[in-house]
Structures are given as structure tokens and as C-alpha cells.
């Protein structure tokens, strides 16, 4: 489903013409199969977020390529990648990234609006998804009126509403308490098992990583350990 091939990435820091090269990813290669949950773990500054940003198309790697559904997405321009994301990749962010001026319903509906679906179709799908994440009673609530766990559910619902084959999750439980964290992890595993969504998740929390079928540990921009759960 996802093939990461020889990704190298170097940040240039400092003023122009007097820059210092800081390599953050070194020869990263791995693959994620359909229906798998892959957890990338590592300490802060290990390069895991940079890797997720490259896979998500928010950054271009210095070298190497990313293949998603047998397509080299590294060469796509910003617009093409946006279209590709809209059809194939969902995102779950650590700090939820909901639009504060929109209600839960409107936030979830947004990807469908971008896809150009009819109002009737959007309403139906959004309501179904709200029910799926257990937020049927929170249609008209603004993000500021929801708890952290509820906001993350809205964020997940916004991802689910387009039924993506892949979800990239950046510290999905990073801002939640332990009780809510378990709820979200249950939701993720449920989606993986029941719908077959492929998850690629980065986390620094070993407990969270335990739900993954495969784990990759990164240290100083290099894969130092790869393990498959039993």
C-alpha cells in the first residue's frame, strides 16, 4: 500500500550562503501493507514527524521516493497531491486541527464540500460518520464546546467521511488523558479491523504503538529497529 524507498532529507539551517546542512532522515525504506497498522516510534527530534510529512506530501524529500497505491507521489505537484490526498489519505493530528469557526458537523462535512458532493449526499454521509464516532448529539457544537477526546473523534470522523484507504496519524493521542486515549485507540483498531483502513501512525508512546501490527523505531534519522507484533 505504501512503499518508502531510500528517503533522505536534510534541512539547511542558518542564513543563505552560510547554511549548515542538518541531515534528519537517512536511507529510510519500509513498506506498509494493506490493512496494516504501522507505528513509527522514536524520541522527539528523531525525524519521525518529518517522515510523516514527506509521506503526507507536505514536504519533498531531498532524495528517495514514496509510492502509495503503486503511484510515485513524490513527483506530484502541490495541486495534484491535494487531489490525491482528498481521495486516498486521511489525517489525524495531535492537536485535532479543527476549524474553530465551524461546527462539528461542518468540520466533518468539509472534505465532502471540497469533493463537490451534493448537499443531500453530504448530510447523509456526515450524519452516518458522526454516529460512527459516537457524536450524534454534537452536530452543532463548535470545537471549543467539545472535550479533547470529542474533538479528536470529530477529527477522525472528518477523515473517515471520505472513506480513505490510508490514514496517517500524527501522535493521535498526544493531547489526551489516558482514559480518552484508550477510547481513541479502540476506535482506530476498530476501524482497522472492521473497515480495513491502513494506518501509519507516529508516536513516542510505547503503549500506543502496541496496537500496531508492525513497529519501526527511528533514532537520529535512521531505522534502528523493525518488529512485527505477534
Amino acid at each position: 500500500m505504501i512503499d518508502v524507498k531510500d528517503i533522505n532529507h536534510t534541512f539547511l539551517l542558518g542564513k543563505k550562503q552560510n547554511e549548515t546542512a542538518l541531515p534528519v532522515l537517512k536511507n529510510i525504506s519500509f513498506s506498509v501493507d494493506k490493512g496494516e497498522i504501522l507505528a513509527i516510534t522514536g524520541k522527539s527530534g528523531s525525524g519521525k514527524s518529518t517522515l510523516l510529512n514527506i509521506i503526507g506530501g507536505f514536504m519533498k524529500p531531498t532524495s528517495g521516493s514514496v509510492w502509495i497505491k503503486d503511484m510515485n507521489v513524490t513527483n506530484l505537484n502541490e495541486g495534484e497531491y491535494a487531489d490525491f490526498r482528498l481521495d486516498n489519505i486521511g489525517f489525524i493530528f495531535q492537536n485535532f486541527q479543527l476549524i474553530p469557526s465551524m461546527t462539528a458537523f461542518e468540520n466533518i462535512e468539509l472534505p465532502l464540500v471540497l469533493k463537490g458532493l451534493s448537499e443531500k449526499e453530504r448530510k447523509k454521509k456526515t450524519e452516518q460518520t458522526l454516529e460512527q464516532v459516537g457524536l450524534s448529539d454534537y452536530h452543532h457544537h463548535y470545537p471549543s464546546e467539545l472535550s479533547g477526546g470529542q474533538q479528536q473523534r470529530v477529527s477522525i470522523a472528518r477523515t473517515l467521511v471520505i472513506e480513505p484507504p490510508i490514514i496517517l496519524a500524527d501522535e493521535p493521542t498526544g493531547s489526551l488523558d489516558s482514559e480518552t486515549e484508550q477510547e481513541i485507540l479502540d476506535l482506530i483498531t476498530g476501524l482497522n479491523r472492521n473497515i480495513g483502513i491502513t494506518f501509519l501512525m507516529i508516536t513516542h508512546d510505547e503503549e500506543v504503538a502496541r496496537i500496531a501490527s508492525k513497529q519501526i523505531h527511528i533514532h537520529d534519522g535512521e531505522i534502528v529497529k523493525e518488529e512485527v507484533s505477534a
Partner: peptide, 15 residues
């Protein structure tokens, strides 16, 4: 911030 979120979930720059 809103524009960033919209772009992240797949809004085309043209839109």
C-alpha cells in the same frame, strides 16, 4: 490556520 487545515485535507490551491 484554516487555509492550512483545508490544504491538509485536500483543498486544491486553485479553490
Amino acid at each position: 490556520s484554516d487555509i492550512g487545515i483545508m490544504k491538509a485535507i485536500g483543498a486544491h490551491p486553485k479553490k
